[in-house]
């Protein structure tokens, strides 16, 4: 039943044995120890499982592991591997998180945005995280964190 799939995780070639009904989120967490994507709602509503596949932020709870054969996956572990990104530093400065549970998903969604639009408008920032639920912050400090000139230089 199990099948070996090959893909890149955070820049490194990797493989794992998965059953057809294994969900990507759980496979990344259980098989490869990538625990930053988390399960919040299990049906795509909350965004805390967000990872990037081939440069696009997606819900890893709505994807089967077998689907990512040959793909490039990036999780917050990969974003944090080198130096701490300007967005992450700005999140610290602006108190853009509280309990921290939504932070990995938020950062992945915003990383996709900043990759495509290095100087987003406030509306674009809101649009990018409109599917990432945060129950603690009230979002204001998250938006402030992205709009900090150190993150998005020109407006």
């Amino acid at each position: 039943m199990k099948k070996t799939i090959h893909f890149k995780l955070n820049g490194e070639k990797t493989s794992m044995d998965v059953a057809p009904n294994d969900v990507l989120l759980e496979a990344l967490r259980a098989n490869l120890g990538a625990k930053s994507p988390k399960c919040g709602c299990d049906r795509g509503d909350c965004g805390t499982c967000t990872v990037m596949i081939n440069g696009r932020a997606v819900r890893s709870c709505l994807i089967l592991a077998v689907e990512v054969e040959g793909c490039e996956i990036l999780t917050l572990e990969g974003v944090s591997k080198g130096r701490i990104a300007a967005l992450q530093r700005s999140f610290v400065k602006h108190n853009s998180f509280q309990c921290g549970f939504c932070a990995p998903g938020m950062i992945m969604s915003l990383t996709e945005l900043l990759n495509h639009k290095p100087t987003p408008t406030e509306e674009e920032v809101k649009e990018a995280i409109s599917g990432n639920l945060c129950r603690c912050t009230g979002y204001t400090q998250i938006v402030e964190g992205v709009m900090d000139p150190a993150v998005s230089k020109k407006r």
């Binding site: 795509g44 696009r56 969604s109």
Partner: peptide, 9 residues
């Protein structure tokens, strides 16, 4: 439709 993370897929 939904949100960007869903629309990407």
């Amino acid at each position: 439709v939904a949100s960007p993370g869903v629309r990407n897929r």
